[in-house]
Amino acid sequence: MDKKRPLVALVAILSLALLYIPSIAVAIFSVNNSRYGLAWRGFTLDWYKLLLQNEYIHQATINSLILAVVSTIASTILGTALALGLDRYPWPKTLHRFFDISINIPIVVPDIIMAVSLTLAFSFLRVITPIFELSLITLIIGHVTFQISFVTLVVRSRLASLNQETDEAARDLFASDFYLFRRVTLPLITPGVLAGAMLAFTLSLDDFIISFFTHGPDSVTLPIFIYASIKRGLTPEIHALSTLMLLFTVVLVVIAERLSRKF
């Protein structure tokens, strides 16, 4: 199609503008030499310097990262196991349907309802053991809960594209259960597992609502910190922080795109 349609192009560019103007504004204000107010007062990197010295932000960043890494590892293992168990073993139909529904709930249901359920769950479980007091641990548990479904989804779709005949060929060639898993199944699902892990990681870093409901007083994550700052009063350090977060996202997306080309 080689007709240039100016109207379409215009709307497209306006849409992109809608998506990026806020981010660009944040970036601009992160180097604006003015603490309050929105007038331009010159370029400065002071806010970035302040940012790097801010203890609270350090803590929040560390929390976000630990949370993301730990929850991703746990959910990837659990999600992959679930996907393998579901796909590779004979289940009666009703049980299969039960599995499917359970897995699909976090994907389909709005975040806030998940958050409310988790709050409820923790309040019950707290009675049994104090592990479930709101803290980094409950944060991690909460994240893993919704991440499992996404990982299972991705790994399952990868499993579906694998042929049963490949397994049969391996058996025909004297492979034991373990050998089959190690040399055939695992290598073939690795791209899916990695994709699932990346998805879980990004979902965790980005999450606000569930974190909001399941964090403890000393386990603040970056999005929560920023939200609290909005209520308290925005400072340019926050703009600097947000700009850095934006840049990080850009890098992640580009890397993901490059990696996905390879597979």
Binding site: Y20, L205, D206, P223
Partner: peptide, 19 residues
């Protein structure tokens, strides 16, 4: 360009409008 905002935190994207 379309994917990047998709993965950017909603809190950050929203408060930016305040600016």
């Amino acid at each position: 360009l379309i994917i990047i905002p998709f993965w950017t935190n909603v809190v950050v994207r929203t408060y930016a409008w305040l600016l």
